[in-house]
């Protein structure tokens, strides 16, 4: 397994380089333009000059190589400088990957948005998984019981009703209809400048993440619980379950040790695929609650054709995707020792 992991890691580097190049081509071909959202009062000749100042008149491969240099060489050097104080080369005037819209280093923008993204999207993912696994297991064990039917109903409604609807519905209920002084009143606008320092500020933080986390957790739980249930059902009817029961194992250990472990493969896949999306943010939910996390950063970048920003963000997602799929593959081997990759 170690061998496999190392081999895969080596293979990752050319894969990621290729992915970064393809992403760059897509972004370059896309017909939206960094001057597209400016007011029409800025005349076309000035727009042409703005494009030139962004370096857009250089050929595509030059711009790609420039990004590679800034991202793979300058940014790590800069991080070393900031974290350890090591200075290699020209530390003062090193060109970092800079967003075209804000003219500031992309890495700093991403760091600024990590807290709210982790609070809201990360929390909702954890909550979603914690709800989904028990529901999936019980639903499968008691197939067609009222619990299963109710679980199915909630999961399907949760999945088929989009977050743009549930989000607004919650705001109308908890922010608009609820009186302002009620303890159930929740803020509809997330305050990113809020810092948790004591108990009351922590309570405020919980209140302001409550609605977006509810919306996202429902959506995540719906999906994961369905896969959990289906996979459990498959395994419950297998011969080894009968054997285990015949051997007189307790029902609890049959269910939670044997069946659950063997049912985890599709669930692990789904969860591993979902984690990069946590960092990708939840674009619609972030917009509804004004969370302004990574998802909002990405969508603003795409709308404004901010190529360095979108390229960097997307590439970081790609790294996460490749890594977590590798983690999933390793987990398969741990869950089912028969799976061999060599």
């Amino acid at each position: 397994m170690l061998n496999f992991t190392l081999r895969r890691l080596m293979f990752t580097i050319p894969t990621l380089l290729l992915i970064s190049f393809i992403i760059f081509i897509v972004l370059d071909l896309a017909p939206n333009d960094p001057t597209g959202n400016l007011p029409l009062t800025i005349p076309p000749e000035v727009r042409a000059k703005i494009r030139a100042s962004l370096g857009l008149d250089a050929p595509m491969y030059i711009r790609y190589l420039l990004w590679c240099q800034q991202f793979f060489i300058n940014e790590p050097l800069n991080l070393m400088n900031e974290w350890f104080g090591w200075c290699i080369g020209d530390c003062e005037n090193r060109l970092r990957v800079s967003s075209w819209a804000t003219r500031s280093p992309v890495v700093d923008l991403i760091a600024e948005r990590m807290p709210q993204t982790l609070w809201v999207v990360g929390m909702s993912y954890v909550v979603g998984i914690m709800i989904a696994l028990p529901i999936g297991v019980i639903s499968a064990y008691k197939q067609y019981s009222w619990f299963d039917q109710a679980g199915t109903f909630v999961a399907m409604v949760g999945f088929s009703v989009p977050t743009f609807f549930t989000g607004v519905l919650l705001i109308v209920i908890f922010s608009v209809w609820m009186p302002n002084d009620s303890i159930f009143w929740l803020p509809s606008i997330y305050d990113t400048t809020h810092e948790v320092t004591d108990w009351s500020s922590f309570v405020f933080q919980i209140r302001q993440i409550a609605m977006p986390v509810m919306v996202l957790a429902l959506y995540n739980a719906a999906q994961i619980s369905r896969f959990m249930r289906a996979s459990m059902l498959d395994n419950l009817s297998q011969d080894y379950v009968r054997t285990a029961r015949a051997k007189g194992l307790r029902e609890k250990s049959v269910l939670l040790v044997h069946v659950l472990r063997n049912s985890m493969i599709p669930v692990v896949t789904v969860i591993a695929l979902g984690i990069p999306q946590v960092f990708g943010g939840a674009i619609i939910t972030e917009q509804i609650f004004k969370v302004n996390g990574l998802g909002q950063l990405l969508i603003i970048g795409i709308e404004g054709a901010d190529i360095p920003l979108v390229q960097t963000l997307t590439f970081l997602f790609a790294v996460l995707i490749v890594m977590f799929n590798l983690v999933a593959d390793v987990l398969y081997g741990l869950l089912d020792p028969r799976i061999r990759y060599d």
């Binding site: 017909p31 939206n32 333009d33 597209g36 959202n37 727009r47 709308e303 054709a305």
Partner: peptide
């Protein structure tokens, strides 16, 4: 989409 329509690409 506005970014394309007004973008002048």
């Amino acid at each position: 989409s506005g970014g394309v329509f007004f973008g002048g690409d």
